[in-house]
Amino acid sequence: MTRSNRILNRLALVLLALLALTAAAFILRPEVERFVLEPLGLVVPSLGLAEAGTVLPIALIVLAVVVVIVALAVTVTRGRGADGTALDQEGVSVDAGLLEGLLRRELDGEDEVLHLRLRAFRARGRVLLAEVQVRRGADLANVHRRVSAAVATADEQLGEALPLVTHITTGLRTRFAGSTRTH
C-alpha cells in the first residue's frame, strides 16, 4: 500500500531486461550476426568504438552517473507514503494514532484479535491501512463482524468515515499465491 507506481516498476524491469539482453547480444556479436542477423538479411553497422576517442569515456561516465542517480532515487523513495496523518481538512488534522486508539478500545477483550495497527498512507488520496493480527484458527466471520462494528463506532466518534483497508493476518509473512496448509 505504498505510493510506488506499479506500471513504472514493470516498465523499468522490461527496460533493464532489454539492456541486459542487448549487452549479451553485443558481447556475442559475431555469433548473433552469423546465426540471427544474416539469415534475416539484416546488416548492422559497426559501432566504431575504437575511433570514438574521448567520446567513449565521457559517454560511459554520463551513463554511470545517470544509472546511479536513478538507482539511488528508487532505493531511497521505495515504500514511502506512510505519514501518520489520517485526515487533514479545514485547519484540523487527525493522527492515525487516534483512530488506532478508537479501534483498539472497541476491540479490547476480543481474544481472537491479538494486535491492531493503523497506518495512514498517501497513495493518490489518503487511505488508512488497519492491520489486524488474529490468532491462528480464529473464527474469521466473527473477527470480521467485530472489526466492522468497531469501525462503525470509530466512524461515529470521529464524525467521518475515512477510506479504509483492513488486512486480516496471522502476522506470519504472506507467501506468494499458492497453497498453504493450515490447521
Partner: peptide
C-alpha cells in the same frame, strides 16, 4: 518478474464500509 502476476496469497471479503483483505492462512484456519 515484469510479466509474472506476482500474486500474494490473499483474498477479499465482501464489506460495505471498507476493503477487507485476508491472508490465505487465516482463511484456511477458518
Amino acid at each position: 518478474l515484469a510479466f509474472a502476476p506476482g500474486r500474494l496469497g490473499r483474498h477479499e471479503l465482501a464489506d460495505e464500509r471498507m476493503l477487507v483483505v485476508v491472508d490465505d492462512d487465516v482463511l484456511a484456519g477458518a
